[in-house]
Design a protein around this nucleic acid. Structure first.
Lengths: 204, 204
DNA sequence: GAGTGTAGGCGTATGCCGTACACCTAACAA
DNA sequence: TTGTTAGGTGTACGGCATACGCCTACACTC
């Protein structure tokens, strides 16, 4: 009967993502998103309970772009998991500012659950079950979450690594030396290298 | 010449930590810490540039309690790393609410750098160097950060796991089944299990 | 076409937050 | 005793999320 809705959740989420991509996560507020959409702040509350839910929509939007179809059977299960993990990482890395949102809301995102389901499928085919399978999934999830944050909070190529170079070498001999090597390691090699360790630990 | 300082950074940090332990991270504000100390809000700014620096002090306080002395040589290098990692995790887990602060400020904390130095020492003794060593340290760091967050944001024994149990089984067959197993896996077994995967991947 | 109920949209106000700024004053050096 | 300096404070500003109440556009009934 009543007046029709003029907004969709998807449109709301993409407006919020636009704000984030333009002004960073600190620029995200109910006010800024409302302005982006050309409506009043309070109008948003007709579509969303609170700011938390808006953030959840953004996470769902981004994670929803991840292709969760596992690669074909010509690949080993390690390679298939690697592909799934890399797809997730690439989707998040396309909007680096949302990393903290992803961490906070991942477990309430349907798209995130679909990804986990897909990884579990590969693990199951590979013969994992029971506690082993739980630990494998959570281990992968933990690594992905942590590594993505490291990558965007303190990238190896960034100023943090330079700062470590300049630490007193007598108190931090290994850190200063390692930091010099670290500047030459690309983000991809770092991420894939760590993932390979985990997969090797899982493998037979 | 002038009036002496009545506060130390340590006292400031422990007051902030007390507020967090009592009222949670959302209860932390310049006002609440000032009240905890019995001074005016603005007095804090004589000791700290801004809220960020206060948070950094809290992280330093907590990470400063970690014993970074590596265990003796009767243990294998994997066991020594495990001990260091577990010490770090236990220190953070003693104040679960600071997890987000730790992630945000870890790389600016001297105590955090000392822990990394110690881990690098063990890795070096174990024969790692160059890019291998960089990747090993960052892999461990990524796992620890991610796993700690998983543990406190969505513990296996928590409601999130129960919610997954109640998902439609036709869309999430593996998730629903795995979630039933997951409830029986303790936080320790989960954390150590994932860490063991990584260490196995590192090992010869 | 007129009337009506529902829900969309908005303006205002409240109580938080971090913090800039100007002021007072305690404590030391002389 | 006095002057200097930095510690401590009160006030104020702009921004935040959001509760509440109002107005009204619209889809329906008749």
């Amino acid at each position: 009967m009543p007046r029709p809705r003029s907004l969709s959740h998807a449109r709301l989420a993409s407006a919020a993502l636009a704000v984030i991509d333009r002004d960073g996560l600190t620029g995200l507020s109910m006010r800024s998103v409302a302005k982006e959409l050309g409506m009043s702040t309070m109008a948003l509350y007709r579509y969303v309970d609170d700011r938390q839910e808006l953030e959840r929509l953004v996470v769902d939007l981004v994670l929803g772009t991840v292709d969760t179809e596992p690669p074909g059977p010509e690949a080993s299960w390690q390679e298939r998991i690697e592909v799934l993990v890399v797809r997730l990482r690439d989707a998040v890395a396309a909007h680096p500012e949302i990393v903290p949102l992803t961490v906070a809301h991942r477990h309430r995102s349907l798209a995130g659950l679909r990804w986990s389901e897909s990884v579990l499928g590969v693990l199951t085919e590979a013969g994992f079950d029971g506690e082993q399978r739980v630990i494998a999934l959570r281990g992968l999830l933990g690594y992905v979450i942590g590594a993505i944050q490291l990558e965007h909070l303190g990238p190896l190529a960034g100023e943090g690594t330079v700062a470590i170079t300049e630490l007193p070498p007598d108190a931090f001999p290994h850190m200063t030396e390692t930091a010099r090597n670290a500047r030459k390691v690309s983000a991809d090699r770092e991420f894939l290298g760590g993932l390979a360790l985990l997969l090797r630990g899982l493998g037979t």
